[in-house]
């Protein structure tokens, strides 16, 4: 599903290149559950962002479902993103002015779905994640764990094939974290490909495969 070839990413710092990603080669199959691990500043999030089309590498090739993503035009890339990817953030990033229901609905609106379709999908999501009773609450009225559940529901609303999660449990206590991880596991079993960035060995264990990153380079896959 995903094929990264010789990906480089650097910043120009006072004349010298400071590499964030260095010659990354990575292959991820459909249905996989990959955990990216590594110390702070090793380039985990950047790698995730490159995969999630939120960031561009300076060099290298990226094939997503056999499509040369980096050669695509911005519009096409956005369409690809919209239809295939969901993003979960460490600090949830729900929109404060919107209710739980509306937060989940937002990506569907951007996809130009009709209100009837949206209603059905959002209802399904609320039901699936057990948050029907919270649909009219605003993010500030929820606990961190609950917010992250909404964040995941929102990411999945567009029924993506790939779910990207950047430290999804980083701001949660261990019990909430476990709940989120078991949710991920379940989703993966249902067929969603998942790539997560994490610090925690325990969370990484939920995945099928661990990718270790150090100073922007992959270590023995």
């Amino acid at each position: 599903m995903i094929k990264l070839e010789n990906i480089f990413k650097w910043y120009q710092v006072s004349g010298a290149r400071s590499f964030v990603l260095k010659d990354i080669n990575l292959h991820i199959e459909q249905g996989d559950f990959v955990s990216i691990m590594g110390p702070s500043g090793s380039g985990k999030s950047t790698l995730l962002n490159v995969i999630g089309l939120l960031d561009e590498p300076n060099e290298g090739k990226y094939y997503f479902m056999d499509e040369d993503v980096l050669a695509l035009k911005a519009k096409k890339r956005a369409a690809l993103f919209q239809s295939h990817m969901g993003y979960v953030f460490q600090s949830y990033h729900l929109i404060d002015e919107l209710t739980v229901y509306e937060n989940i609905e937002t990506p569907l609106i951007y996809k130009n779905l009709s209100s009837k379709e949206r209603k059905a999908i959002v209802a399904d999501m609320l039901d699936r994640f057990g948050i029907v009773g919270k649909k009219d609450l605003f993010p500030s009225q929820l606990s961190g764990g609950q917010q992250q559940v909404v964040g995941i529901a929102r990411a999945l609303a567009g029924s993506p094939k790939l779910l990207l999660a950047d430290e999804p449990t980083g701001n949660l206590n261990s019990k909430q974290g476990e709940h989120i991880m078991s949710l991920f596991k379940q989703l993966n079993e249902e067929g969603v490909t998942i790539i997560q960035v994490t610090h925690s060995e325990k969370n990484a264990e939920y995945g099928h495969r661990i990718v270790n990153l150090l100073d922007g380079q992959l270590k023995d896959i």
Binding site: K75, A78, F81, Y87, F89, I95, P107, Y110
Partner: peptide, 13 residues
């Protein structure tokens, strides 16, 4: 900017 960033990440053009 945060809000707009999220909206973009959610697929807003």
């Amino acid at each position: 900017s945060t809000e707009m960033g999220i909206r973009k990440a959610l697929g807003g053009t």
